[in-house]
Design a protein around this nucleic acid. Sequence first.
DNA 1: AACACTATAATTAGGCC
DNA 2: AGGCCTAATTATAGTGT
Lengths: 230, 230
Amino acid sequence: MVILRKLPKRTQGRKRIEIKKLENLNNKQVTFSKRRSGIFKKAAELSVLCGAEVGVIVFSTAGKVFCYGHPNVETVLDCYRSGVAPPAVFDDTAGDQNPNRVPMAEFNKEYMEAIKELEEQKRRVVEVKEEVRMKKVVGGCGEMFWWEDESVDLDVLDVQEVEHYLMSLEDVRKKMAARLHEVRILNGTLTPRALPPVPAVHRLCHMPMMTNGFGAQGGQFGGGYPGFGV
Amino acid sequence: MVILRKLPKRTQGRKRIEIKKLENLNNKQVTFSKRRSGIFKKAAELSVLCGAEVGVIVFSTAGKVFCYGHPNVETVLDCYRSGVAPPAVFDDTAGDQNPNRVPMAEFNKEYMEAIKELEEQKRRVVEVKEEVRMKKVVGGCGEMFWWEDESVDLDVLDVQEVEHYLMSLEDVRKKMAARLHEVRILNGTLTPRALPPVPAVHRLCHMPMMTNGFGAQGGQFGGGYPGFGV
DNA sequence: AACACTATAATTAGGCC
DNA sequence: AGGCCTAATTATAGTGT
């Protein structure tokens, strides 16, 4: 007769943890690494299963950046920024013989609408531009932009103003991105990357920065930014 | 004596599925919704547990965009774009005397690479075409940008050219974003949102667009963009 | 489409290397 | 950091409403 006896448990197994800031540094790092890759994996699965375009960016507290993207991060970000949806994945169930074919019929209709919308936007922007801001934003005719001028007194600069400029720039950028799409579509050529790689990172001020002490209570789903302490 | 009898199973329970494109439309939509929120939840947990800044953007095949971000998407995106690490959460466990300092060791290496790459890009473009571009890119002194000019012949436009312009714009934008950070930090004021809200979304073409036929094999972790068939 | 259910598959916390 | 292990927790496929 065989005597079965319980082996001593080698591990305690998984334990439930509260979702709150991990205080143990090592523990935090390990968890960060594991969960980060877990999220990347899930993101990849989502993109495969559902043909979705997914982009994930994670900054560690140390300021390191990790990211995953399908088809790649830049594409997703740019689509988000520009408001232009990424090229739809072909749906095999449609029974179409040629998966690479562009469904032009449908496309043309929407394209015309897009163009019309573009025109409208242009008109709107021109109106707003009367405020003369655009000239300043997009830079003068020289080599240097005003905000690159060292002599500009930062303390005098109004944050709201800068925000406004940035917004305008964003607007211009959107137009460019949209235009790029148009050009690509009209040419029928799409380069390997949907957008040029961001030439890696111009870390102008990647300085110490600040601390804001938000921890567990941090904004869910796009919440606010707790003010920085003085 | 109580007679226990198994109730008929009401569900089959969870079943394993292959990670490949879901063919059933309804199934796909449900899965998309469930898994999407699953990822958002995990992202939120990661940010709380590890004090990480996380941004997730998901496009459905229909072109709808969903996102989650901590502290919010814009902040994360902008930090990514500008290469500026988000404000570090204070780490009590770290014995470092200056918790606000962002470790820059690695950055400088990457920065130099970035600069080199940028230079290379510039040179390449200059080879193909003559200079004089930059002036056009950043806009002339007039009210209208060249790409808004109706008379521009799209067919003649070189995609690479547009890409280059877009890249330059991106560059300008990065500078602006970085500057904004500086200004904010120097002022000691940080508005509720780290960046101005993206002024809605300019959905120029949220159209069917194109098809590229990548499915399950899609690029993992920043893979390339399978070329579109003609 | 969003919610409830539930059996089961997948993830993962806490070890240890 | 990364891999392996184990037990428990958690996510979720399939279903119903």
